[in-house]
């Protein structure tokens, strides 16, 4: 909650690092953390969603294989897709949040080419015209 506090506009890097440390410290939390983040990413408050996306981006590079495996699953990717698609929550999210989600997903297709599900999800978004360029 502290790392995604919407009342603080700028990133709270100390809290984000503490969150990563806690995820690294305990096996259970590294599969639970993505779900917590997905919930925050889908927040109606733009600042909270943007903070959660920054925490997600930081965790993916700092929180080990279990966390990585969880975000590379459709179970998590679908939560990001719901933010983008008008059929789900897409109409409620600002362009700022949606372009940030696309930016992160695209970076994962580049950094983790071996993750087939990330690539499939991104290809589907392009095919549906949800991701332009």
């Amino acid at each position: 909650d502290k790392a995604t506090d919407p009342s603080i506009p700028e990133e709270n890097w100390e809290c984000i690092q503490r969150f990563c440390d806690r995820v690294n410290a305990d096996k259970e939390s590294s599969s639970l953390a993505p779900r917590l983040l997905a919930h925050k990413i889908q927040s109606p408050q733009e600042v909270e969603a943007l903070h959660a996306l920054t925490v997600l981006e930081t965790c993916v590079n700092n929180c080990g294989e279990r966390f990585h495996n969880e975000i590379a699953k459709f179970r998590f990717l679908n939560e990001l897709i719901k933010v983008l698609c008008p059929k789900y929550y897409g109409t409620w999210f600002s362009e700022k949040v949606k372009s940030r989600v696309i930016e992160i997903m695209f970076s994962w297709t580049v950094w983790f080419p071996q993750e087939v599900k990330i690539r499939d999800a991104y290809q589907m978004l392009k095919k549906q015209g949800i991701v332009k360029e």
Binding site: K27, K73, L77, N78, C85, Y88, K117, L125
Partner: peptide
Amino acid sequence: TVSFHDDSDEDLLNV
């Protein structure tokens, strides 16, 4: 100890 590896997942959302 064998670390538990959870491969459960769901299908890609149909948009």
